[in-house]
């Protein structure tokens, strides 16, 4: 299947089941909303916590959404068909990842500045938060997809997936939250943002191959 055909199919499927797009977004907002309730509503405290809180929530939201990435295809047999097809899995997987990011990652990117504002993040940091989440979430989707491919055939995939993937998310969390803290302190951010962009490009070019290998392992051929 070509890139555009897979992409169209994914977008159409998602269009029919909008809950799968909206639920991760709800989750993201709710987790962030718990922090002022659990810690303190003091603006200066929230502003210090904000980069980390938004990033941890985004990370968990992506992780939860990525769990079902291949499950429907696996259960319906569409995956098996794709695996037995003669051509490489790289392009269809790449398309699937891109579609998944557009459906679940992009809403998080749009919501992040608003949440940053609600957590009293200084204004100059909100734009950086937006760009950082924009550059970071594709990496999260790509890495998460490798874990999803490896656990797709297992009954209790969800909790295992988080054990596999969360340690791999550390660099994105560190640089993503760090660059927002930099911006809040008025320090230069372009270098770290470039690093996040490089990680996105590297993960999106390498991950489809790893995902394809993972899917082959999971299906046993």
């Amino acid at each position: 299947m070509s890139f555009t055909a897979t992409m169209q199919r994914e977008l159409l499927l998602a269009w029919r089941r909008p809950a799968e797009i909206i639920n991760p977004l709800f989750f993201f907002v709710m987790v962030v909303a718990l922090f002022p309730l659990g810690v303190s509503p003091r603006p200066e405290l929230l502003a210090t916590l904000a980069p980390g809180v938004v990033w941890v929530a985004a990370l968990l939201a992506v992780l939860l959404s990525v769990d079902g990435l291949f499950r429907a295809d696996h259960d319906s047999g569409a995956l098996e068909q794709l695996l037995t097809a003669p051509q490489s899995l790289y392009v269809p997987v790449l398309a699937k990842l891109a579609a998944h990011w557009m459906l679940t990652g992009l809403p998080l990117v749009v919501m992040a500045p608003l949440l940053g504002y609600m957590l009293h993040l200084p204004e100059q940091a909100i734009g950086v938060l937006f760009i950082a989440v924009l550059l970071g979430t594709p990496t999260l989707v790509a890495i998460g997809a490798i874990g999803a491919a490896l656990t797709v055939s297992l009954r209790s995939g969800g909790i295992l997936l988080s054990l596999l993937v969360l340690p791999l998310y550390v660099p994105v969390l560190v640089f993503g939250a760090g660059v927002v803290s930099y911006a809040a302190k008025g320090l230069p951010v372009s270098g770290v943002l470039a690093l996040l962009g490089a990680m996105m490009l590297a993960s999106f070019t390498l991950a489809p191959a790893a995902v394809a290998a993972g899917l082959r392992i999971s299906s046993g051929n």
């Binding site: 490896l150 660099p171 790893a210």
Partner: peptide, 28 residues
Amino acid sequence: RQAGRAAGLLSVVGVINVVIVKYSVEWW
């Protein structure tokens, strides 16, 4: 067999990651 191969793929991804983790944690 499947367990061994899956763990192998995860460790390959992990090794690439360890380098970046080390660097990122130092920066952090």
